[in-house]
Nucleic acid binder design. Structure first.
Length: 461
RNA sequence: GACCCUUUCAUCUAGUGGCCAAGGAUAUUACGUUUUCAUCGUAAAAACAAAGGUUCAAAUCCUUUAGGGGUCGCCA
């Protein structure tokens, strides 16, 4: 069985990069009827917060991804890690190192000065003498001293580093707490993971973790290192580049299916296909199709996808979603008219809500430029005549309102725009927007007349 | 600085030695549809980072250079 995981450290919100790698992991598990597990990497007690855990869970919930079983908290497993540290110590696969932080710093300085890659020099590896006074030791693992550490990455291919690149790294701090690379390897093994999909910033951690796997006799899972997401300029994605918190997208009016579709196509593709439902993603996803190179964030594409999903969303759902954006048309008998008239004009729910409000709320004032342009010439007369015709027309549907406009156009032998522009500004206060017949069908004759008469008053004033 | 990863239109990408005078999508521009805007439709423009090889044949294989990214913690 395929078993994958997402293992965030709860130091903040869920980042879209993290969402993409967890999406990949989730899809791969789902595709294989496997399991997707969640592990919270909270060994750094100082930097973690419960709110962060909740924020991550909330984001998962919003996009509709769920994990199997119980979430595992590393902070609750210190006893377990301690057991393995003791075991390695006993077996002579790890040892205590009494080097102080100051000594370490000094060593690094020297190595840097010589232009070398900094690494621990192994001075306590075979130490048998009397330990120095007053130094609480750390525990270091014995890494191989010669040969290569290699593995096959499912995305990058064959990857190997010289043993000299991996030093005897610390697995337990002087206060006894275990370190990242140690606990990750143990948990990944104990949780029975078969496939580890993560960011390629972890590429260099993998050889270290393999050292742990081998020392403990665990079998090594498949690794897939996914390249990072950069901003539109190809630089590292930072907060200045706009939303990086997944939940910000919700507030900005994006649909989760659009965000997931956007993210799945960042670094992954399936031929020429652009639109993927979650079901299709699950069916078609395969980590072998993930690209090696990093990809750039592209807001235009996200917006396009979001518009696509808004257009195709059932009205029940749309009406429900709009409540959070200050528009409640759930019980309106005009609901479908309203959504049909507006849903192609909003790339986000925020934009859609404002389109709807534009129709529902009578204009409180007319933009001076619009008014000047639309209310010039014989606009007043035309509007006046239109009101009269409307009174006798008994129109209620889009088609009937359209017919009223048609008849005034025919009667006066004018272009459609001649009545269209003044009418639109009267009704919306705007030069652009939904179809006039649609707007009137939503407003009804009474409200339409009220707005037009108000405009006539304004012009005459 | 050392080591590693990476490089196809502005952007996401297809492409695994001949089907590629490089395809799709977004964005852009034009035209059409529309009372307007949007949607939609049609079209245009737009790329193999550079230089050397290997080969009958290279976007695809090799080398070097350049750009971008990552790692070098008693952080994760």
């Amino acid at each position: 069985m395929i078993r994958t995981r997402f293992a965030p450290s709860p130091t903040g919100y869920l980042h879209i990069g993290g969402l993409r790698t967890s999406l990949f992991s989730w899809l791969w598990a789902k595709k294989n009827q496997g399991e997707f597990l969640l592990r919270i990497e909270d060994t750094d007690l100082a930097r973690n917060s419960e709110e962060a855990v909740e924020a991550i869970l909330k984001a998962f919930d919003w996009v509709g991804m769920s994990y199997d079983g119980e979430a595992i908290f590393q902070s609750k497993r210190f006893d377990l890690y301690k057991k393995y540290i003791d075991q390695l110590l006993e077996e002579g696969k790890a040892y205590k190192c009494y080097m102080t932080k100051e000594e370490l710093d000094q060593l690094r300085e020297e190595q840097k000065a010589k232009g070398e890659r900094t690494r621990y020099d192994g001075r306590y590896r075979d130490f048998t003498g009397t330990p120095p006074e007053g130094v609480e030791p750390v525990v270091r693992i014995k890494a191989p001293q010669e040969g290569k550490i290699s593995f096959v990455d499912g995305i990058k291919g064959e990857f190997s580093v010289d043993a000299s690149e991996v030093d005897d790294f610390i697995i337990a701090r002087s206060d006894g707490t275990p370190t990242y690379n140690f606990v990750v390897a143990i948990d990944d093994a104990l949780m029975g993971l078969t496939d580890v999909i993560r960011g390629d910033d972890h590429l260099y951690n993998t050889p270290k973790q393999i050292v742990v796997y081998e020392a403990l006799g665990f079998s090594v899972p498949n690794f897939y290192h996914v390249a990072m997401i950069n901003n539109e300029q190809g630089r590292k994605l930072s907060k200045r580049d706009g939303a990086t918190d997944v939940m910000e997208y919700k507030a900005l009016g994006y649909l989760p299916e659009a965000l997931l579709n956007f993210l799945v196509r960042l670094g992954w593709s399936h031929g020429d296909q652009e639109i993927f439902s979650v079901e299709e993603m699950i069916e078609l996803f395969d980590p072998k199709d993930i690209n090696k190179s990093s990809s750039n964030y592209n807001l235009d594409k996200l917006l396009w996808l979001n518009a696509h999903y808004i257009k195709n969303k059932p009205h029940d759902d749309l009406a429900e979603l709009l409540v959070d954006f200050g528009v409640d048309i759930r019980d309106s008998d005009k609901r479908d008219l309203i959504l049909n008239a507006t849903k192609e004009r909003g790339k986000t729910l925020v934009e859609l809500a404002s389109q709807i409000n534009l129709i529902l709320n009578a204009p409180s004032e007319y933009n001076a430029k619009n008014a000047k342009k639309a209310f010039k010439g014989d606009a007043v007369e035309i509007l006046g005549e239109f009101v009269e015709m409307l009174k006798g027309a008994n129109a209620s549907t889009k088609e009937e309102y359209h017919a009223v406009i048609e008849s005034i156009v025919a009667k006066r032998e004018i272009g459609f725009g001649k009545i269209g522009q003044p009418l639109r500004v009267s009704l919306l206060g705007s030069m652009t927007g939904s179809g006039l017949d649609e707007i009137m069908a939503i407003l009804g004759t009474e409200e339409t007349i009220r707005r037009v008469e108000k405009a006539i008053e304004f012009i005459n004033a």
